[in-house]
Write a protein that binds this DNA or RNA. Structure first.
Lengths: 185, 185
DNA sequence: AGACTGATGCAAGAAATTTGCTTTAAGCTG
DNA sequence: CAGCTTAAAGCAAATTTCTTGCATCAGTCT
């Protein structure tokens, strides 16, 4: 039986907090489970049993970091909303911290749940913008299309090709997703 | 000084071979550095010193696995080449083994060199197809565009959303990359 | 209130990782 | 080709991390 309340929840929170604090204090390379356990006031074996290993724990924490904390801005037109959102999204995800969280989230995630969660976050944000635009009467692509044309290219480059990520690139992707793009130049 | 020949090279090969063999025999979950060292006829400390940890070693081996072993087929028309290539690429990368290699390659790769290598493999394959098509006189997009429109969506879905990867999806992406796609439906 | 159950604490044992020192062998020099 | 130099490998001891069985604790249910 899952016991969301009570001691388990307190332990989970203490451990997550310890991860965040120690990540900031000593850096991720120095993180070890015994160290985290000491900070969290918990026995190492508790962490081993609940999370298995450091990667899975870091993955859980990373997903929390990657959860968007605000709704996308409403600028009155889908293109503007999406361009602005893409630019900000890219800036966050391409930063050293963003890359680290993304990698961690993917890393310790045997069944892909955490990665799926990240994608859902983006899909939700996009869905919000599309719904607004549809209400305004704009022609809108579907969310999957925006994922393919905007999010996927950015994430691919962040993960596989560290260079060439400019705000202009994000804006171009957003524009192509909204307006379509023609035959090859 | 780098010493590509001689003992270092033999050790590297022995270790890589041991990784491949043991990965097949006992599965990745059971892989440990002492185990690999024993199989490779090498001291554990050698592996620790050269690779640092298991992830970096697996990352190196994964990149080898991901290197394409054949040139893309020539079907006489870019669209056909690209569709067929995308379909096969997706099948390989979305398979359990392909996913595992991709994750490993990203995982133990602090500076992104290995991930960049993977992307270069795809870019080379695409470049070959585009060059052929250009020679035939076809209008061709550039390789970056194909990466954005074909490879990135596939890899994003493989990493972040395990479902919905069908051959038809790969073909559609290839088609849209070549023929462009219009305004939102 | 009391029984039940899953999670945590504790501690001992096993396994892995680190590290200082020695030895080996590839590449260079004369 | 013999001798020198040096990066890399071997070895072993010390350290740290990980695993595991058992006892205890604290929610949850009746």
């Amino acid at each position: 039986m899952v016991r969301p309340g009570g001691r388990s929840a307190r332990v989970q929170q203490a451990v997550h907090t310890a991860v965040r604090e120690l990540q900031a204090e000593v850096g991720r390379a120095e993180l070890t489970i015994p160290l985290l356990a000491a900070r969290a006031g918990v026995t190492p074996s508790t962490i081993y049993r609940r999370w298995g290993d450091l990667q899975e724990l870091l993955s859980d924490v990373a997903v929390e970091h990657l959860r968007p904390d605000t709704l996308p801005e409403d600028r009155g037109r889908l293109l503007d909303d999406l361009q602005s959102w893409a630019e900000q999204f890219m800036e966050e995800m391409a930063s050293p911290a963003g890359r680290a969280y993304t990698r961690d989230a993917l890393l310790g995630d045997p069944d892909g749940d955490n990665a799926g969660q990240c994608s859902d976050y983006a899909a939700d944000q996009i869905g919000t913008m599309l719904a607004r635009a549809a209400e305004r009467g704009e022609d809108v692509p579907d969310a999957e299309t925006v994922l393919d044309r905007v999010v996927a290219p950015m994430m691919y480059r962040i993960l596989f090709r560290p260079d060439g990520l400019t705000p202009a690139y994000a804006r171009r992707l957003a524009q192509e997703a909204v307006e379509g793009f023609g035959a090859p130049r």
